[in-house]
Design a protein around this nucleic acid. Structure first.
Length: 183
DNA sequence: GTACAGATTGAG
DNA sequence: TCAATCTGTACT
């Protein structure tokens, strides 16, 4: 099975499409001579500025969220609750604040966005990292196809404050996968 | 300058 | 059920 790195063109597409197609792809993190690899099993889409749950709601730009406006294929990472990092992948074109939150990998060490970043040793230095060019983190397509019947759409987690947007089925995960968070 | 909520997690 | 822990944002 050949594996190929996902290119810019994969990410510069509608966010919901990218969110679903990221399921079954592999996140590769190289630390020195070691490689950590995990299959993506859970994602969430954040589509600003109309999405109340998005940091870019109403199109605001702050030092924290400015990387969310980058062209698809970059990392947008930020600290939440003062202790957990959240890894997002930007989508769409430059200037569009849309991204996909990577919530879980197929690894017992990465069943949730906070644990995922801890396992991969991700921190603020990855903010704005180019996934198409970086030597320390990237995404691979290893030929694995997830059938549409295996993809479950559900409301997103932890954003009850977002009113009607909190009910949007913009969380996607692989059916019956034991590594999906919030079981 | 101060106050406060948050895309979470693990312990109790 | 709740505290840990800190940045961004909206106040004074």
């Amino acid at each position: 099975m050949k594996s190929k790195r996902l290119k810019r063109s994969f990410f510069v597409r509608p966010t919901l499409t990218v969110s679903k197609e990221l399921l079954g792809k592999f996140l590769v993190r190289r630390i020195g001579r070691k490689k950590l690899v995990g299959k993506i099993v859970e994602t969430e889409a954040y589509i600003g500025p109309e999405d109340r749950a998005s940091h870019a709601f109403l199109g605001k730009i702050t030092p924290r969220n400015k990387t969310e406006y980058l062209e698809g294929g970059h990392i947008y990472i930020y600290l939440c609750y003062g202790m957990y990092w959240q890894m997002n992948i930007t989508t769409a074109r430059k200037g569009k604040p849309e991204c996909v939150l990577i919530r879980a990998l197929e690894s017992p060490e990465a069943t949730g966005p906070g644990k995922l970043c801890k396992w991969l040793k991700l921190d603020k230095s990855f903010d704005g990292e180019n996934l198409c060019k970086s030597k320390r983190i990237w995404l691979e397509d290893r030929g694995l196809k997830i059938k549409r019947s295996q993809i479950v759409a559900a409301p997103r987690i932890g954003i009850d404050y977002a009113g009607r947007w909190a009910k949007k089925p913009w969380r996607f995960y692989i059916k019956n996968n034991p590594f999906v968070s919030r079981k």
